[in-house]
């Protein structure tokens, strides 16, 4: 499988520790690659480098073997892009924005364009300024997909979309992959990348900390769980259960953190009378903080 995106030591240093540092990344052609990180981690900075909109402090980036800066125009013939911040086209109608940018992109199949507009239920006769943020995002998706590019670079594409359109978007991504396309999708929502991605790159504080398959991602994922019992709490089985940490007990209520599968915890409470069980996924930021602080602590302990 050839590579769609490759970066070597890509660095954009904004000073004061902000920016992107020494990014070595390879995205294979034909895969859906999730680029995951909390706000301010460097996702958009990476994408702006790939799109040739910003210049690296050092290092290089290439798309389909073409340098993202020196051959920016050739690169973009093969790329569809959704920016993180929607532009302001003011009084232009949706279909005028499509015609304006479509003529620059070239190779737009009108039948495919019509299908995209219908699938996303976008009213292109409205003026851009009348669009809600969700409709603006839909228009940007239409523009990114309209010329059926080999690579889609999507910066938080689902923010502002309602759940139905999010599902439609995931379908569009899967179809693009089936046609042989590559998708580079940035997000700060863990569950989103699980829906569609083959592999995931995790970036934090400007550095790529992990490139993982979906299976690996489950190790990172954690849930905060609260269980209420009618009688005695099976404290020891819960504390001994694999992947269960941070157990605290308050009367008949247990609070704990579950990493990975729920099976060990379910086995531990199997004999007890459970009145209520609730679980929620913390923010990605919290997940990262917990995961990496623990990983660092373990690493320090192992060196002592």
């Amino acid at each position: 499988m050839s590579e769609a995106i490759r970066t070597h030591g890509l660095t954009k240093d904004y000073g004061a520790g902000r920016g992107l540092f020494d990014l070595d990344l390879e995205v294979r052609a034909g895969e859906v690659f999730g680029y995951l990180g909390p706000n301010g981690a460097g996702k958009t900075t990476t994408i702006r480098q790939l799109m040739g909109l910003a210049y690296p402090t050092r290092g290089s980036a290439s798309i389909f073997g073409l340098d993202c800066h020196r051959q920016a125009v050739e690169v973009k013939r093969d790329v569809g892009y959704v920016p993180g911040e929607p532009p302001q086209f003011g009084g232009l109608r949706g279909r005028e924005v499509i015609a304006y940018l479509g003529a620059m992109a070239g190779g737009v199949d009108q039948a495919h364009l019509k299908e995209l507009v219908e699938r996303l239920e976008l009213d292109v006769s409205r003026r851009y300024r009348e669009y809600s943020s969700g409709n603006k995002k839909k228009l940007l998706l239409v523009i990114a997909f309209m010329h059926q590019p080999r690579l889609l670079i999507l910066d938080e594409p689902t923010s502002g979309l309602d759940p139905l359109n999010q599902q439609e978007f995931y379908t569009m991504v899967r179809e693009a992959r089936q046609r042989g396309g590559t998708v580079f999708l940035s997000s700060h929502v863990l569950s989103e990348v699980e829906h569609v991605c083959d592999r995931v790159g995790i970036i934090r504080a400007g550095r790529l900390v992990k490139v993982a398959s979906l299976e690996d991602l489950h190790e990172i994922r954690l849930h905060r769980v609260e269980i209420e019992f009618a009688g005695d709490v099976p404290v020891e089985p819960i504390r001994r259960a694999d992947g269960v940490d941070g157990v605290t007990i308050e009367n008949h209520r247990v609070h704990c953190v579950v990493r990975g599968s729920f099976e060990p915890l379910m086995a531990a409470v199997a004999g007890a009378h459970v009145v209520n069980l609730s679980s929620h996924e913390p923010s990605l930021e919290d997940t990262f903080l917990e995961y990496y602080s623990e990983a660092r602590t373990e690493a320090v302990a192992s060196t002592c």
């Binding site: 799109m51 040739g52 909109l53 920016a72 125009v73 050739e74 973009k76 013939r77 790329v79 892009y81 920016p83 911040e85 929607p86 532009p87 302001q88 086209f89 003011g90 940018l101 620059m104 992109a105 070239g106 523009i143």
Partner: peptide, 14 residues
């Protein structure tokens, strides 16, 4: 400032 130039330069435009 309104992001239109970004959209234009994300197409195959010098």
């Amino acid at each position: 400032t309104e992001g239109i130039l970004t959209s234009v330069l994300s197409m195959a435009v010098h």
